[in-house]
């Protein structure tokens, strides 16, 4: 390993030297004239959005040319170009000064901060949505993945739901999710256990294809042991042929 990296470093150095050599040639043939006066610095400064509510933040962005030092009042010395989130409590005018051998340049940008409206008295500050709430609102309540009878193929009309679920799983990598495979009441308990297993794994495979990390997803088959609907009708059977998601990866 060490030998390899040494070799790569040497190679890189050689390339740099060769490239540098190539570049230097035009400089070497440049006519011998007196150096021009140092160029005047220039600078840009912007804040986006220009108006925020108290407590929100905006992005301050700046750049400069021909400067050796940039300061923004009231922030202080900053990089020659860059950006930074700002969240002042009141409206602020940012004042940039770029200094170089050729002089200075100045720019200003104003951020208007509006005071927050008084909160309605009855509402206490809501806690941020918990993982469990977000899971219920964005995955469980949006519906399960449904199957045709005696089939564990993903139906085309279920793709949109799968993509929506995959999005949430990817946005919540800490959420360990159990995929439950369920079947309708027809057929033997054991056959339905295996069919439910295939259904759970079919959805897991599809989610992994959509970019969800496999370790985030557990599968379990309940066959026909936990029906959602107990009528012996086609519509009820369709209700029971599903993959249902639960939070907390289940047990292995």
């Amino acid at each position: 390993m060490k030998k390899n990296s040494l070799r790569i470093t040497l190679l890189a150095l050689l390339i740099v030297i060769l490239l540098a050599g190539c570049k230097k040639k035009p400089v070497a043939v440049a006519p011998q004239t007196p150096p021009p006066p140092p160029p005047t610095p220039s600078a840009q400064l912007s804040v986006n959005p220009a108006t925020i509510m108290q407590g929100d933040s905006a992005t301050l962005a700046w750049s400069s040319e021909n400067a050796v030092s940039v300061t923004i009042d009231p922030i202080g010395k900053v990089d020659l170009s860059g950006q930074q989130a700002v969240s002042p409590n009141e409206s602020t005018t940012y004042h940039l000064t770029a200094t170089g051998p050729g002089g200075t340049a100045e720019q200003t940008a104003r951020l208007t901060v509006n005071a927050k409206p008084a909160p309605p008295p009855a509402v206490t500050t809501a806690p941020p949505e918990s993982l469990a709430d977000s899971f219920r609102n964005n995955v469980q309540d949006k519906g399960d993945i449904y199957f045709d009878y005696d089939s564990f193929s993903i139906r085309p009309d279920q793709q949109a739901a799968l993509q929506r679920d995959a999005q949430w799983f990817k946005q919540h990598p800490d959420a360990k999710v159990s995929i439950e495979g369920h079947c309708d009441e027809r057929g033997s308990t054991e056959y339905n256990l295996t069919l439910g297993d295939n259904r759970a794994r079919a959805v897991k495979d599809a989610l992994v294809q959509l970019g969800v990390p496999a370790p985030q997803l557990n599968t379990i088959s309940y066959g026909k042991e936990k029906p959602f609907c107990t009528e012996s009708t086609e519509s009820c059977w369709q209700q029971n042929r599903r993959d249902h998601f639960t939070l907390g990866g289940g047990m292995q």
Binding site: F152, S188, E190, Y191, L193, T194, L195, D197, N198
Partner: peptide, 9 residues
């Protein structure tokens, strides 16, 4: 057995 899909009982 080696078949993708249910095998049981």
């Amino acid at each position: 057995t080696a078949y993708r899909g249910p095998d049981t009982q």
